[in-house]
């Protein structure tokens, strides 16, 4: 990291964690990641949409688990011993995200990030930071904070608006 930033004197370097959903490669800002762990059984919550798998106990905190594969219809929502949960720290809250796997931590400078496409990705473009090519592999950079705190996921109580239920 130190050497990298020394090289990139003019552009901002950021670290991203890449993960796999179905066939596609995604990446999120590593600063939002609290930890990575295997999938374990969760406690279901009444009247929650199917992509909210439930809650689990993360060392005393009751943390909701979201399956992005179900939310965005990518890949198959199967749970094997290789299924991964990324624990994210967003807005003083902890949220777990189920993905098919995590692959790498990559360094990207701002000029390596290209603007996101308007279509062709499972995520709405408002939740994307951009695209980047890493080892000839296209990686989609996700604005995970915006996605997790969005009303679309409905994970958090909406701030001002009336409750959606």
């Amino acid at each position: 990291m130190a050497t990298n930033s020394a090289l990139a004197t003019h552009t901002q370097q950021r670290e991203f964690l890449t993960f796999v959903l179905g066939e596609e490669h995604y990446a999120l800002d590593i600063m939002a990641v609290k930890e990575i762990r295997g999938y374990e059984a969760v406690t279901r919550i009444a009247n929650a949409p199917p992509f909210i798998k439930g809650v689990l106990n993360l060392r005393g905190d009751i943390v909701p688990i979201v399956d992005l594969r179900m939310k965005f219809n990518v890949g198959e929502a199967t749970y094997t011993e290789f299924t991964i949960v990324i624990m994210l720290h967003v807005d003083n809250r902890i949220v777990g995200v189920v993905v098919d796997g995590v692959s790498d931590v990559i360094n990207l400078s701002d000029d390596e990030i290209r603007p996101p496409p308007e279509f062709g990705v499972a995520f709405d473009s408002q939740y994307l930071v951009g695209l980047a090519a890493v080892d000839e592999q296209l990686v989609i950079l996700v604005n995970i904070e915006k996605l997790i705190s969005s009303d679309e996921l409905g994970l958090f109580e909406q701030k001002q608006n009336t409750v959606q239920e």
Partner: peptide, 27 residues
């Protein structure tokens, strides 16, 4: 008693959550 709202939101009919002896969560 553990809060559900801390990381999630209020759930109708549920006052909170707790952690059982085996580490699982019960509502």
């Amino acid at each position: 008693i553990k809060s559900l709202e801390q990381h999630y939101k209020r759930v109708a009919g549920v006052a909170g959550a707790t952690i059982m002896g085996d580490g699982s969560v019960a509502l």
